[in-house]
Structures are given as structure tokens and as C-alpha cells.
Amino acid sequence: MMGIPLPSFLSGQLWKIATGAAGVIALVLGFMLISTTIENHQLSNRNKDLMTQIEDPNTGYVAKLAQAHTNVATLQNQLKESLASYQKLEKESNAKLADTEIKLKAAQDQTEQMKGQLRRFLATKPQGSTLEAQINDIDRRAMAEFLK
């Protein structure tokens, strides 16, 4: 190989400079290797911690998620049962309400009928010339009208 001839003092110095530069590069690369190894170790530990947080059977996110799914399913079943109970109660209440409304209507009709009887009874003047005859007439009419 032909190259530019260097003076002899430079060729001896060049190797020293190259060796020094290689040493500095080796130190830099060694430092980088050590820092990368430390960083890798820290990341591995963090990864283990995260995996524990995710997969721990008692406190991990997978266990918590499974428990949450179970809780949701339980809640849905309880809501269905509650809804069925409320619907049954609604039907029973509607039936009782309808029965009560029928009884109320009958009682109102009976009340109106009794009011009419009472109006007719009070509209008729007592018959008789004496107070005793009038009282006997009121009593007779009341017994006939109200005790049917």
C-alpha cells in the first residue's frame, strides 16, 4: 500500500495517539455498557414489579378484574330478581287496588242509596194528630224504610 510517507517521528506518535484514542473509546464504551447493564437490571426489576401488580392472585389487576366481573354478574342477577319481585308486587298491588276500587264503588253506591232513603224519609212529614202518633209514625216508617 502506497500512501503519503510520514516523517518517522509522526509514525511513532501516531500509534501512541491511536492507542490513547482507542483507550478512551474503550472507556466510553465500557461506561456505556455498565450504564446499559444497570438500566437493563432496573427495567427488569420494574418489569417484575409490574407483572406482580398484574398477575398476583390476591391483589393483581387480573384478580381484581375477575372479581369485578363476578360482582357485575352478581349485581345483574340481583337486579333481575329485584325486578321480578317488584313486578310481582305490582301485579298484586294492582289486583288489590282494583278490588278496593270495586269495594269503594259499592260503598259509595250504598251511601248514595242511603242518602236517598234518608232524603225521602225526611221529606215526608210525620202523620198523626198527637205527638205520640207522630213518633209512632216516624218509628214505623223508619223500621220499614231502614231495616229492609
Rank of each mutant, 00 (worst) to 15 (best):
Ser129Gly: 15
Gly23Asn: 06
Asp109Leu: 03
Glu92Ser: 06
Lys88Asp: 13
Ala26Arg: 10
Val72Phe: 05
Asn71Phe: 00
Thr130Gln: 13
Ala98Gly: 00
Ala66Glu: 05
Gln113Val: 04
Arg140Trp: 05
Gln134Phe: 08
Thr130Glu: 10
Ile135Glu: 02
Pro126His: 09
Lys96Gly: 02
Asn136Glu: 15
Ala106Pro: 07
Ile38His: 12
Gly3Leu: 05
Ile4Tyr: 03
Glu132Leu: 12
Ala107Leu: 08
Val28Met: 02
Phe146Ser: 09
Leu122Cys: 02
Thr100Gly: 00
Glu39Asp: 14
Leu65Pro: 01
Ala18Glu: 05
Arg119Met: 04
Lys16Leu: 12
Lys148Ser: 11
Phe9Lys: 13
Leu14Tyr: 01
Gln127Asp: 08
Pro5Val: 13
Thr100Tyr: 10
Val28Gly: 00
Gly60Thr: 07
Asn136Gln: 15
Leu43His: 01
Val72Asn: 07
Ile38Asn: 09
Asp139Gln: 14
Met1Pro: 08
Ala142Gly: 14
Ile54Cys: 12
Thr52Met: 01
Gln108Gly: 02
Asp56Ala: 08
Val62Glu: 02
Ile38Val: 15
Leu118Met: 10
Gln13Asp: 13
Ile4Glu: 05
Leu10Tyr: 08
Glu90Gly: 07
Lys80Met: 09
Gln134His: 11
Leu6Met: 12
Glu112Cys: 02
Lys91Val: 14
Phe31Ser: 12
Ile25Pro: 06
Ala66Gln: 04
Leu27Ile: 09
Met51His: 11
Gln117Val: 03
Leu104Thr: 14
His41Phe: 06
Met114Val: 07
Lys148Ala: 12
Ile135Gln: 07
Gln76Thr: 10
Thr37Ala: 15
Arg119Ile: 04
Leu65Gln: 04
Pro57Ile: 01
Ala26Asn: 09
Asn94Phe: 11
Thr19Trp: 02
Leu104Arg: 11
Ala123Met: 06
Arg46Cys: 04
Ala21Pro: 03
Ile25Leu: 15
Leu97Glu: 07
Leu97Gln: 10
Asn71Ser: 10
Ser85Gly: 11
Leu27Phe: 08
Asn71Ala: 12
